Amino acid sequence: MNNLIQQLPKTELHLHIEGTLEPDLLLELSKKHHVDLPYKSIDEIHAAYNFEDLQSFLDLYYLGASVLVDEDDFYQLMWRYLLKCKEQNIVHTEMMFDPQTHTDRGIPFATFMPGFVRAMDDAAQQWGQSSLLIMSFLRHLTEQEAIDTLAAAKPYLQHIEAVGLDSSELGNPPEKFVRVFEQAKSLALSCVAHAGEEGPADYIWQALKLLKVDRVDHGVRCVDDPKLLQTLAETQMPLTVCPLSNTKLCVFDDMKEHNILDLLAKDILVTVNSDDPSYFGGYLNENFEALQQALNLNQQQLIKLVKNGFTGSFLSEQQKAHWLGKIDKLV
């Protein structure tokens, strides 16, 4: 099964580029920019990756992002992830980035966007890597700050496919961001939002009805609402599920309790993704392997999950058909 996981062309739809910051690069950049971290070794960093909940992860995540300062830092961050895509046969990736994490530190769009785009262009030219960017708003901040961020992004919109909503979910419902999502839609941007990870099923309804999202990030709490389950199945609304993340952040106590295959059986368009792989113990292939080990993922389920990734993506219908055909020929 692991060989098939590797061989299949795949897409990744829920990946925070700042969450791919590996301990070696973290230490390298902290020394480069004289950033004082509470960790002196890679082992100490790994020891800190035992999270109690989403907030304990976010605290470390934002600390890690503090070492990203100049354009080359952002290039290196993006380039290393795209190399991982090549290694794991992720032929298309849609990556979230958090501009407010950087602008609040005085790092402007003019620094991080050229770094990201240059790495994406290099990967496209060197091995045909397909990639898109999703600009995520930090939901623990105000909607006005999100509106200001959207305005600051306007010179770079040709490089941005969609907007998203991430960070601390509890206490920050989607309804808080209706105006900025309306503005994003008016700029012809697609929309996604984290909902129903730690927050309730009602947050998923809000994302669907108020933000009018094109897909839901996480969404695993949909099982708490039978009507929502029916709606998700009928509309084939994609859910970008992140198994290793969900267990690392104690959304599920054990991978054996994860509901992704139950949702798949209910004909919900669930996809597999790695979220913040350097913090959660694995990239995309490792997430599939974890499902195989804990839930006895079979070949039919694997193929369906991989195909769902393409179906739920922002690729053109022609591109989707191309890759779905490739998968059919492979199996």
Rank of each mutant, 00 (worst) to 15 (best):
H34T: 13
L8T: 02
K227W: 09
K32E: 12
S130L: 14
K32I: 09
P9I: 14
V251E: 02
K248T: 12
L13K: 06
L263G: 07
P38Y: 09
K40N: 12
K84D: 05
G282Y: 02
L210E: 13
H34L: 11
Y39V: 07
L210V: 07
D72P: 00
D275W: 10
K326P: 06
G64E: 11
R139S: 01
H33R: 06
N89D: 10
C85A: 11
V216G: 01
S41R: 00
R215P: 03
D224P: 08
W205L: 10
V216S: 04
W205F: 11
L189T: 08
L29I: 08
V91G: 02
P277F: 08
K31D: 09
T240W: 10
V331W: 12
A193F: 06
I17F: 04
D73K: 02
A188G: 09
L8V: 08
A48D: 14
D276F: 04
I204K: 05
W127D: 06
F181Q: 10
C242V: 03
V251A: 13
L228T: 14
Q319G: 06
D214Q: 10
H194D: 09
R80N: 13
V241C: 10
L208W: 13
T149Y: 00
P200M: 06
I147Q: 13
C250V: 15
L284Q: 11
K10I: 15
V117I: 14
E22G: 03
Q100S: 07
I160M: 04
